[in-house]
Write a protein that binds this DNA or RNA. Structure first.
Length: 674
RNA sequence: GCCGCCUUAGCUCAGUCGGCAGAGCGAUUCACUCGUAAUGAAUAGGUCCGGAGUUCGAUUCUCCGAGGCGGCACCA
């Protein structure tokens, strides 16, 4: 339904809208459409059962609007909690807010929920939904709430935090708002009995019936109470809820589509990379087919960087401790670094140290190494901007639970660059970096971008450096971001400790958002390493550093592209670009001849001489997402032609060989996606 | 790291209420030589994740560990 049909009503129009002249007017009197589940009264979301004061403006909230969906999902969370407490009366309640596409509710109970429990809970929820319970709001004092919720220790804690609920935990504000405390009673419409109640700010649906058939419980997980690792872990049940069964089904299909594109699955199916247990968690090996695609990515990016005035450098994977003391990484990120390798220590027979050893660390960042290249000789303003780039492999000791395919690993390669600029060059250079980032990402077929400007935290401990410098830098970044014409979101408190940054987010083919590139200003490391350049007037000046990565992690970028294309890469990136499929063995040599010509033009081509029928070969190479299959039999050989079959099943038969070669080469050169 | 679930052939998965294990795909071989998504047959392939315990006997039960998955927390 279309919410725009419902213009805001004001109660001066009560005569037309209200049914009971002179009586109290509620949202139910104003809005009869069943798709309207709540209202905004003078901007505040409220239940339809609430009284609308004279002169107030009341806008309808439909179930399919963003607010309406949140209300639906939050009400579904209440139904879940009621179902849990019906089956397990000893379960204690945490919080249960709506989230993207669904809801969750946290419970404390001794035994873990099983997948069978989820089925039983879903059944119980269906019963509650069918009963058509009403959600009835009731204002209570703190004392009344404490008395009623004496058995719910987590709720009592939230009452104590009232007003500070936003800070108590993400989602906690749905339970207790800043104003008065309220409890929602779930009332059976037939008997008028209160079936269940929960501390809640609301609003809620008029009836559980509206949750209809569009909900499902999805999974169970552990979650720290109030998100804090030192507090107990509760059991969180996730669910999804939609206004209709069709929308639920569409959501489930989106999940299925995402699962099909999962880079871990495609990586195995397409023989691109793997994570051998023998090597260790979060450490990938690249098989020939994956290495070809990755290599094409790297080579293309490298060419473009050189065109843009970047100089490639190489640095080691390991370094003495002092470097990361100077850079402060050991202090700030020490926990995420791999433990040191202790070198060169010598001891006598009693075990006394006779020669002091040195600790070496795997590098978690390339920047200190690039700084040392800068520092190796004195620099002039004429050298700047100096742009040092490296595909530098770094190692971070990620917690085991954080690891995820290629997107969160313990060893990865940054397409890292550090730009050393004068303060006057900062804004122009940053602009160039941002334009370069966008242009290069577009080469890979990404088009939908958004920027986030991360600014420093209000708390002084979270950042270092001079406040005025932060201001200047942040203002410069803001101007650059706005000049790009992209959507810019400002994120206070999200900056790195050493400077503000612009992050670039990209939306993929199925609408998911990924963070890719980052451009970070750094006034701190030049200070710590005492970097200098000689200005035109002969004075010594301090350069500013710009850290930037386009892909962030090459491995992760590869994974994102793999999912974006669902494994069907553009021709230039495809591990195998052409496969020749002879109709019968006799025609293989004819195809080999064409393949040799293609190979001569740099095309990655194979001829399938396996002992299979051509139909099977076509199926195999289609599943392997090869962009061009060239088929030839008696007809094509006689005519000096070849027949194309594309990944989508379409075909183009009897194409003269020269033209076929021309078309393939052109598709590679233009980075076409066929 | 924490909570929960999982780990059987190269891959996807059955199975054994405790008696030394199976399918499909893939691989190999043979036959077939075929015009746009699976030709047929045969063969090979297993420390049932690792270790310890219980037991006459453990892939199965218990404990410990490793790895994976879903979340939480973390993410320079």
């Amino acid at each position: 339904m279309d919410a725009s049909h419902h213009r805001p009503l004001t109660l001066t129009e009560r005569a037309q809208a209200a049914i009971y002249d002179g009586a109290v007017t509620t949202g139910f009197d104003l809005f009869s459409d069943r798709a309207i589940v709540a209202m905004r009264v003078d901007g505040e979301l409220q239940d339809l059962a609430r009284e609308v004061p004279d002169g107030a403006s009341a806008e309808p909230v439909t179930i399919d609007s963003p607010d309406g969906l949140d209300i639906l999902r939050h009400s579904a969370a209440h139904v879940l909690a009621q179902a849990v407490q019906r089956i397990n009366p000893e379960a204690r309640l945490g919080i249960g807010p709506p989230v993207q596409d669904g809801f969750y509710y946290d419970f404390d109970l001794p035994e873990a929920f099983s997948s069978d429990d989820l089925k039983a809970l879903q059944k119980e929820m269906e019963r509650i939904v069918k009963a058509g319970q009403r959600f009835v709001r009731r204002v209570v004092t703190d004392e009344e709430a404490r008395a009623e919720l004496a058995d719910e220790p987590y709720k009592l804690e939230l009452i104590g935090l009232k007003g500070g609920a936003e800070k108590a935990a993400e989602g906690a504000s749905v339970e207790v708002g800043a104003g008065e405390l309220t409890i929602y009673d779930n009332v059976d419409p037939k008997t008028g009995e209160v079936a269940w109640k929960d501390l809640c700010r609301g609003p809620h649906l008029p009836s559980t019936r509206l949750i209809g058939n569009g909900f499902a419980l999805t999974r169970v997980a552990g979650a720290y109470w109030r998100g804090k690792t030192d507090l107990p872990q509760l059991q969180r049940i996730y669910g999804t809820a939609w206004p209709s069964k069709d929308e639920l089904r569409a959501y489930q299909q989106r999940l299925e589509e995402a699962a099909k594109r999962d880079h871990r699955k495609l990586g195995r199916e397409l023989d691109l990379f793997s994570f051998p247990d023998e090597i260790g968690s979060g450490l990938s090996v690249w098989h020939p087919r994956g290495a070809i695609a990755r290599g094409e990515m790297e080579q293309h990016a490298r060419r473009r960087h050189i065109e843009q005035g970047y100089s490639y450098v190489y640095t080691p994977h390991i370094t003495k401790r002092d470097l990361f003391v100077t850079s402060n990484h050991l202090v700030t990120y020490g926990e995420g670094m791999w433990p040191p390798i202790h070198m060169d220590e010598e001891r006598d027979d009693e075990g006394n140290v006779t020669k002091q050893g040195v600790d070496y660390y795997l590098k978690p960042m390339n920047c200190p190494m690039h700084i040392l290249i800068y520092k190796d000789r004195s620099r002039s303003y004429r050298d700047l901007p100096l742009r040092l780039a490296e595909n530098g492999t770094v190692y971070r000791n990620e917690l085991s639970g954080a690891l995820h395919g290629l997107t969160r690993v313990r060893g990865f390669t940054q397409d890292d660059a550090h730009l050393f600029v004068t303060p006057e060059q900062l804004e122009e250079e940053t602009t160039k970096v941002l334009e370069f980032v966008l242009s290069l990402l577009q080469d890979f077929g990404l088009t939908d971008f958004r920027l986030e400007l991360s600014m420093r935290d209000d708390e002084k401990e979270k950042w270092i450096g001079d406040e005025a410098i932060w201001e200047t830098a942040t203002d410069a970044l803001r101007r650059v971001a706005q000049a790009s014409g992209l959507d810019v979101v400002e994120e206070p408190g999200e900056a790195a400790f050493y400077g503000p940054k612009i992050d670039l987010k990209v939306t993929d083919a199925i609408g998911r958002s990924w963070q890719l590139s980052t451009v970070q200003l750094d006034f701190n490391l030049p200070e710590r390493f005492e970097l200098e350049y000689t200005a035109a007037d002969g004075s010594k000046q301090r350069p500013i550093m710009i850290h930037r990565a386009l892909f962030g992690s090459i491995e992760r970028f590869f994974a994102i592209l793999l999912e974006h294309y669902a494994g069907a890469f553009p021709v230039w990136l495809a591990p195998v670009q052409v496969v020749g499929v002879p109709v019968a063995e006799d025609y293989a040599d004819y195809l080999e001849d064409i393949a040799a010509q293609l190979r001569g033009k740099g095309v990655r081509v194979e001829v399938d001489r396996s002992d299979e029928r051509m139909q099977k070969k076509i199926r195999t190479h289609t599943l392997m997402k090869v962009p061009f299959q060239l088929i030839a039999g008696e007809k094509d050989r006689d005519a000096g032609s070849v027949s194309f079959r594309f990944r989508d099943g379409t075909q183009d038969n009897g194409v003269p060989v020269d033209e076929a070669i021309r078309r393939i080469v052109e598709a590679i050169e233009t980075k076409a996606h066929v």
